[in-house]
Design a protein around this nucleic acid. Structure first.
Lengths: 119, 119
DNA sequence: CTTGAACCTCACATCAGTGTCAAGTTCTAC
DNA sequence: GTAGAACTTGACACTGATGTGAGGTTCAAG
């Protein structure tokens, strides 16, 4: 599929998809004319990338992580090195703290909303 | 208390505390010489501000929100307007989606970590 | 007093993903 | 073959909280 359709199906801009490619996160075949041609699996991958970005991971970590992930259709094509495992564990802990923070903020907002509604 | 101690106790940099003041999020008395003098309640407030920033709220929203929050020692000093409630509800929904995304990323990382450990 | 830590304001830099525009090429359908 | 949509690369802008450094002032303890 071409970049326009991939953008539409994932909700990620064409600009970002091209950026992901420069970061080594997303490969694409090329048509004879040079247009990108993505496999169907790109949809899942882009969504995964987007989620990881949202979780605060940087391109480099995502790039290292991607080959170690289990794809929808198969097992991982690589096993994380001890060094990577250490990094990812730190990231996971950071995400846990982030979730805890978000919960508190969510509760704060919810309380303000409820207070206003009950007034 | 002065800015250095507040920074130490909250883990937020002095730079950020001064920035919060320019954004109307954090008030301080001044000594005759011009140094900031914070009340004890500033500690809780700063932590709360930090959490809201981490949740993706911008200064302006936090500024509107703060007076409507229940402080540790008392009730809110203002009630959110319908317009603000609408905004905050949107933010709350966004935070919910963010938490869901984070959970998925957390699970992704965890699986890679477990796979590596079991190998 | 003096001295050093702590504080003040102001200004400029940074980060990294994304938006946007320009100028040119390819694709597809008629 | 031609029109227009879709694509290409490249460059520049932005966001907005935070880092950092300069140059000067205040505070607190000896």
């Amino acid at each position: 599929m071409r970049i326009g359709e991939l953008a539409r199906r994932t909700g990620v801009s064409e600009r970002s998809l091209r950026y992901y490619e420069t970061q080594g996160l997303l490969a694409a075949e090329r048509t004879p004319g040079g247009h990108r041609d993505y496999p169907e699996t790109a949809v899942d991958r882009v969504i995964r990338i987007q989620e990881l970005y949202a979780a605060g991971l940087h391109s480099e970590k995502i790039r290292q992580l991607l080959p170690c992930m289990r794809d929808r259709d198969g097992g991982p094509s690589a096993i994380a090195t001890p060094r990577l495992v250490q990094d990812l564990t730190a990231e996971r802990d950071r995400i846990d703290r982030m979730i805890a923070d978000l919960r508190r903020s969510r509760e704060t907002l919810d309380e303000v909303i409820r207070t206003a509604r009950d007034a």
